[in-house]
Design a protein around this nucleic acid. Structure first.
Lengths: 108, 108
DNA sequence: CAACCTCTTGGCTAAAATACCAAGTAGACA
DNA sequence: TGTCTACTTGGTATTTTAGCCAAGAGGTTG
């Protein structure tokens, strides 16, 4: 793994990493429906506002969302809609995992 | 975020999380070309065998790869080829980030 | 069966992520 | 101007992740 390959993998991995948290992923799904302010997302995930704010910063840092302040509120938007395409394959993996789990249970 | 939604997001996020490490992502890309034994992957990423083995366990735990022992070696294979479809969108995000970065530089 | 090879696991340490509360910032509005 | 609202940041404790070395497990081969 030379320096260039390393850098490429690191850049890609950073995006997956940003999506690799339940609350962040859920917020991304919600943002797919349209822009949301921090307060809405906070209600949605049921964590402290400060925690939600930090999660949003991670998503922003990865380039997945962008923010815009209007009045007192800050609205977040999905920057790259194709993120949603990812979910199809993820679902396939989950279904496959579930099937394997069933197979294991049947063996017992 | 009720229990069911929480569980669904957690399951999905776990897969992204597994992909969210440079070495693991690189190995997935390599496995896209065909099965590889641990020793080949170890050479490729240039880490300790034990570290590579642990990374592979993470990928296996997420249901992304499967393993098969043949003789002394253990061969890993991609379990769900559609994982590769994910990269297209990731690349879009990276390109978009790069553009923004350029814009910031030009402002200065 | 003894030496060897490939891989996994135990043990440990260092670094990073996550969550909360408290405090700060910035804008709205009486 | 003072206060309220929406959000971010500082500080901190806890948990998780990542890496290596050493040791074990499982198969091969002389």
């Amino acid at each position: 793994m030379d320096a260039q390959v390393q850098a490429r993998s690191a850049a890609r991995a950073a995006i997956f990493k940003a999506l690799g948290h339940p609350a962040r992923l859920y917020m991304v799904e919600e943002l797919a429906k349209g822009e949301r302010c921090v307060c809405e997302l906070t209600d949605l995930v049921g964590m402290d506002t400060s925690t939600v704010s930090r999660h949003l910063r991670v998503l922003k840092g990865a380039g997945i969302v962008k923010d815009e302040k209007r009045g007192l509120q800050v609205f977040y938007t999905l920057r790259i809609p194709c993120i949603l395409n990812l979910f199809g394959c993820i679902e396939t993996v989950l279904e496959s995992n579930a099937k394997d789990q069933m197979a294991v249970l049947n063996e017992a």
